[in-house]
Amino acid sequence: MIQYLIRRIFYAVPLLIGVNIITFVLFFVVNSPDDMARMHLGQKRVTTEAIAKWKHERGYDLPLFNNDKEEGIDQFTETIFYQKSVGLFLFRFGRADNGDDIGADISQRMWPSLAIAAPSLIVGLLVHISLALMLVFFRMTYLEFWGVALSVALMSISSLFYIIGGQFLLGKLLQLTPISGYDLGLNALKFLALPVIISVIAGIGSGVRWYRTLFLEEVEKDYVRTARAKGLSETTVLFTHVLKNAMIPILTGVVVVLPLLFIGSLLTESFFSIPGLGSYTIDAISKQDFAIVRAMVFLGSALYILGLLLTDISYTLVDPRVRLN
């Protein structure tokens, strides 16, 4: 087991290096620091001194890969690649354009993101799985037909409409919850209710359909027929046999996204003005703060790779048939 783990972790390293190189090429080679400076200082009538000063303040005035002016190891370390990209591996994100420490911002902002994303995931799973089970229970009836039709219709609505509609209905017309905002501690609950409800409802269409196909695949299998032949009731078959076996793909699907919960959702957070990482990224995009976007790209990828790792591990834990080799 330990050996297997170590091997999986070593598989992740080249992936991280690949992501790092992609972000580096995107942000420094395709688009040179001069361009960044010009975008920030205004396109026209920018003096070269202003650009040089802007670059120097942010440490972008070094050569990309190889610094001829330095000696020994400094030849490698005194470069943009080392200073800006290698540090990402150690989660040293550097400073944003306004001078704030990105790492500190991230560690502070990931908790509100988690506070939204985690309940949304859990409630969503419960609701979607029980609805899907219900459709499977009533299969070959009108209820199933209309349930599936409804979920296709729900799937065809843009998530923007769910958010806008929910804010309008619950927040403005019924005045049940605040339309947007965030607070610390227990006060956060009333702000969290609306985004969680909306994200669960917005996911019903695709979620129910997906889980239904998983369950239907299991229902066809031999062990289910055997269970029925033994005389077990449909409820027992469905809840103890089918649900348990379908949990394997469900669980592994969930494990992948677990680390990404910290990143939060761009849309939800900016609509509900929640000070999480999603809205942080959106602000950075609109301010054209390349340093933050770069940090978030790397962080997101690293967390996804972590999710893949966890998935592999959870497979072996949940399904004894999977061998470690």
Binding site: L15, V19, N31, L266, V293, V297, G300, I305
Partner: peptide, 14 residues
């Protein structure tokens, strides 16, 4: 492994 939205955002900035 790069989250899609972020990759799109980065590319659009570029």
């Amino acid at each position: 492994s790069i989250p899609g939205v972020l990759l799109i955002a980065a590319s659009m900035l570029l």
